[in-house]
């Protein structure tokens, strides 16, 4: 694995409500998101959009970013089937997801 690329990039810089909104027009993607909402939440695109706007979700983005930068998340990320680089900071996590998506497409 290559050395972690240092940057100030955090997941909350990327997953803004505006970035997530267009995704919710895709029913397949929504269906993949529903199981990961809090139990008491409705299974609707509107609810996902509302959750993405909450401070609790932003906080989760910030703390996941911090944890990724600490480099201690490797084992936790393996459950998503991501490559060994996924634990290498926010950049490493994002590029691992991109690689995984490319592979899945083939």
């Amino acid at each position: 694995p290559q050395a972690a690329q240092r940057s100030n990039l955090r997941l909350d810089h990327i997953l803004t409500p505006g970035a997530v909104a267009p995704l919710l027009n895709n029913p397949e993607i929504c269906a993949a998101l529903f199981p990961h909402l809090p139990e008491s939440s409705e299974r609707t695109p509107e609810e996902i959009q509302a959750i993405v706007r909450t401070p609790q979700f932003s906080q989760a983005l910030v703390s996941l970013s911090t944890a990724l930068e600490s480099g201690q998340l490797g084992p936790l990320l393996r459950q998503f089937g991501l490559g060994p680089n996924a634990g290498n900071g926010v950049e490493g996590f994002l590029s691992a997801i991109q690689e995984q998506a490319k592979k899945d497409k083939k």
Binding site: L11, I14, L15, A19, V20, L23, N26, I29, A32, L33, H36, L37, P38, I51, V52, T54, Q56, F57, A60, L61, L64, L76, F80, L94, I97, Q98, Q100, A101, D104, K105
Partner: peptide, 19 residues
Amino acid sequence: LRRHNFIPLIYEILKGLAQ
């Protein structure tokens, strides 16, 4: 929401965007 583990949701959203 505070008690919820958002990591799988965040991962799925990012995956959806990558796809």
